Amino acid sequence: MEKITVRVPGKINLTLDILGRFANGYHDLQMVMSSVSLYDEITLVKKEEKNISVTVDKRDLPVDERNLAYRAAALLMEEFALTGGVEIAIKKQIPIAAGMAGGSADAAGVLKGMNSLFELGLELPELQKRGLTLGADVPFCLLGGCALAEGVGERLTPLEPLPRAYLVLAKPDFAVSTPWAFAQWDKEPTKERPDLAGMLAGIKEGDIRQIAAKLGNVLEGVTGREYPVVWAIKEKMKEYGALNALMTGSGPTVFGIYTELEQAKRAHTVIKESRMAGEVHVVKLGEWEEGR
């Protein structure tokens, strides 16, 4: 095999809670995460020269060691002393700096792709162990589906497939620094916490209304106070039929859950026309038959 193309989905947080901090300064997290049907496409091609080249179809992304995809390739090239190199071409659909793990997804795609391309024979847990050295979301991006993530995100418990629903994703035209959001939360921790037990029960029962009712993210207040448009988007989504809406990760992307496609499309149009968000997508949540 000389070439492989991998599609990797973005993620949303159905819940995000901070339980404390570890001795090394990292936060002790408890999150329910789900993949969504918005993908980056990564094509890897073997080359004779022992180097890594990265191209991305978005001009504002680095293509050197600052890019997680580049670092994922470098990690495997060094560990396995690979004789050749690799060309990596990334087609982005997952919004950048959006709380949707776009960089981590690309790293996961490169790890998966190089494992196949160079016949490294690594199983999923072995890929996840290496992925964790690149970023806390990489192990989940390698797993996909729906999972409870604990620790810094490395302890993953797969959950039941989510019921089918539509999401409207809206990313305002600014980026939020994850370290900044956590630092602000540390100064004034949130008293109201996500109902994890209720979320897990809703997922187990396949009840999309209970899942929507139990959405929660302790970082939403931090980002929303600094950027009130986050709350404005949430209210607009609910006004146009969302069961509920939430900011994912440290933001600023907001998602609303819809049971009807026409409602989701209408909300998409309204939010796009309002100019509250530069990127707006309608995507799928849960298990769908191929081709639906």
Rank of each mutant, 00 (worst) to 15 (best):
Leu124Pro: 09
Ile88Lys: 07
Ala264Thr: 07
Ala108Tyr: 06
Leu200Arg: 04
Glu260Arg: 13
Pro139Gly: 10
Lys58Met: 11
Ile257Met: 01
Gln30Ser: 14
Ser250Trp: 12
Cys141Met: 13
Ala108Asn: 07
Thr15Arg: 08
Asn244Trp: 00
Arg7Glu: 14
Met77His: 04
Asp40Asn: 15
Tyr39Ser: 03
Thr178Leu: 09
Glu65Thr: 13
Leu246Asp: 00
Trp180His: 10
Leu261Ala: 12
Pro62Gly: 08
Asp207Tyr: 00
Val222Asp: 02
Ile88Thr: 08
Ser104Gly: 14
Gly102Thr: 04
Leu61Phe: 06
Met1His: 13
Arg193His: 13
Arg225Leu: 10
Leu243Phe: 03
Ala147His: 11
Arg71Gly: 01
Gly256Glu: 04
Leu61Val: 15
Leu127Val: 08
Ala264Asp: 08
Lys46Leu: 08
Gly221Leu: 13
Ala97Leu: 01
Glu119Tyr: 04
Ala165Asn: 03
Leu14Ile: 07
Pro252Asp: 00
Gly198Ile: 11
Leu156Lys: 12
Glu119Lys: 14
Phe140Cys: 10
Glu48His: 08
Gly206Asn: 01
Asn217Leu: 11
Leu159Asp: 10
Asp106Gln: 06
Ile233Pro: 07
Ser250Asp: 13
Thr253Pro: 02
Trp180Lys: 05
Phe80Cys: 01
Leu38Met: 14
Glu123Asp: 14
Ala81Ile: 00
Asp186Trp: 01
Ala183Tyr: 06
Gly256Tyr: 02
Ala170Ser: 14
Glu119Pro: 01
Arg21Asn: 08
Gly291Arg: 02
Asp64Tyr: 00
Lys50Asn: 10
Gly144Arg: 13
Val8Asp: 02
Asp57Ile: 09
Lys171Tyr: 10
Asn24Gly: 06
Met247Gly: 04
Gly241Leu: 10
Thr43Tyr: 07
Gly286Gln: 11
Cys146Val: 15
Glu188Val: 11
Glu235Trp: 10
Val152Thr: 14
Leu120Gln: 03
Ala107Cys: 01
Leu29Thr: 13
Val86Glu: 01
Glu78Ala: 01
Leu61Asn: 10
Ile233Arg: 02
Ser116Thr: 12
Ala107Val: 06
Trp180Pro: 03
His268Arg: 15
Ile211Pro: 03
Ala98Pro: 11
Gly10Pro: 10
Thr55Ile: 08
Lys214Ile: 05
Gly216Thr: 10
Pro172Arg: 04
Phe22Lys: 14
Phe80Ala: 03
Pro189Cys: 09
Arg209Ala: 11
Ile90Gln: 00
Thr157Asn: 12
Leu200Val: 09
Asp28Thr: 09
Leu122Val: 11
Ala245Tyr: 06
Glu2Trp: 13
Arg225Lys: 15
Asn67Leu: 01
Ala105Glu: 09
Asn67Val: 03
Gly84Glu: 09
